[in-house]
């Protein structure tokens, strides 16, 4: 710990330091130039956040995927100004504060002996606490909305085994290696495994859950766009993990019913499939 003697010395020095934020026309002050670099970095960051993810992410096929997309965009926009502060100061320091001495091996004269700045630390702390609260509230809100029981719900059993997926539709006797789902219907996946841990990941539905042997895990998704989607294994599960993928198809509810019948389900069980599972949905949560 510094003695009072040292503190006194330091105070004297800090009084001698040239005012950094005052004097001269505003555009000549370093703080203004750093601000300009910061603004440029921030704008670039926000543009990337707004434009890039939708181009490189797969087709959005569910509410959950929209949540993922919105989260990525929002978090990137929030992070851009913070990252830009660091990068702007670093970039400016390399240009303006770099000292070249005639002798390469000789260090430049000492810089300003700044031992700390309560305002800077408090402001930084305040901003980061605020951002954490925003992130947390956003995350909790979205997660809460995803876990809500929906009126229009079906359940599908998902079973992983080395190295394929099996989907069965309880009550109908239908079992398939392709995940057929009706549009605009919330699906609760009841996921388990026969051997080792797998990761059930219907990619374009924007959600995933591990398939654990001996346990059933639940995840729900609401597909809202027709079309084919990928189902991959996201947990290393042994020799042919790389080949453990299949696909699914989001179809209209009437197509879905006729698909169930074509797989051998009786008409009564197909009609019962949705109504029975409504009560399951009410029972969950």
């Amino acid at each position: 710990m510094s003695t009072s003697h040292e503190d006194q010395k330091r105070e004297e020095i800090s009084e001698q330091i040239d005012p950094f934020f005052k004097g001269g026309p505003i555009y000549r002050r370093p703080i203004f130039k750093i601000g300009v670099i910061w603004a440029i970095f921030t704008i670039i960051g926000i543009l990337i956040a707004l434009l890039l993810p939708q181009h490189i992410m797969p087709t959005n096929q569910s509410h959950e995927f929209s949540d993922v997309m919105n989260t990525v965009v929002l978090f990137s926009i929030l992070a851009a100004p913070v990252a830009a502060v660091v990068w702007a100061i670093a970039a400016y320091s390399l240009v303006a504060w770099r000292k070249r001495m005639p002798d390469y091996n000789e260090p430049p004269p000492d810089g300003a002996p700044l031992r700390g700045n309560t305002v800077a630390i408090s402001a930084w702390l305040g901003v980061s606490v605020f951002l954490v609260i925003v992130l947390l509230v956003w995350g909790m809100t979205v997660l809460g909305s995803q876990n809500q029981a929906q009126a229009n719900t079906i359940r599908v059993n998902v079973t992983g085994q080395q190295w394929l997926w099996n989907f069965s539709y309880p009550g109908t006797g239908v079992s398939s290696n392709v995940l057929e789902l009706p549009e605009n219907t919330t699906v609760i996946f009841q996921v388990t495994s026969q051997d080792v841990t797998h990761g059930f990941w219907p990619v374009e539905l924007g959600t995933q859950i591990d398939a654990n042997p001996g346990f059933i895990t639940y995840i729900q998704a609401t597909p809202d766009k027709l079309g084919r989607f990928d189902v991959r294994c996201s947990q290393l599960c042994g020799l042919y993990h790389s080949y453990m993928y299949t696909h699914g198809e989001v179809v209209t509810p009437s197509q879905f019913k006729s698909w169930l019948r074509s797989q051998g389900a009786s008409s009564s069980s197909v009609n019962g499939f949705t109504s029975i599972n409504k009560t399951f949905a009410e029972g969950k949560n």
């Binding site: 502060v85 660091v86 320091s93 504060w97 260090p107 300003a112 800077a120 930084w124 702390l125 980061s128």
Partner: peptide, 23 residues
């Protein structure tokens, strides 16, 4: 955990702030 990490970052940037950068 991003809060203490941010503080460490601030201190690193603050150390460079107005230094005589010897590259």
């Amino acid at each position: 955990i991003s809060i203490p990490t941010g503080i460490v970052f601030l201190c690193l940037v603050g150390t460079i702030w107005r230094g005589s950068i010897w590259t």
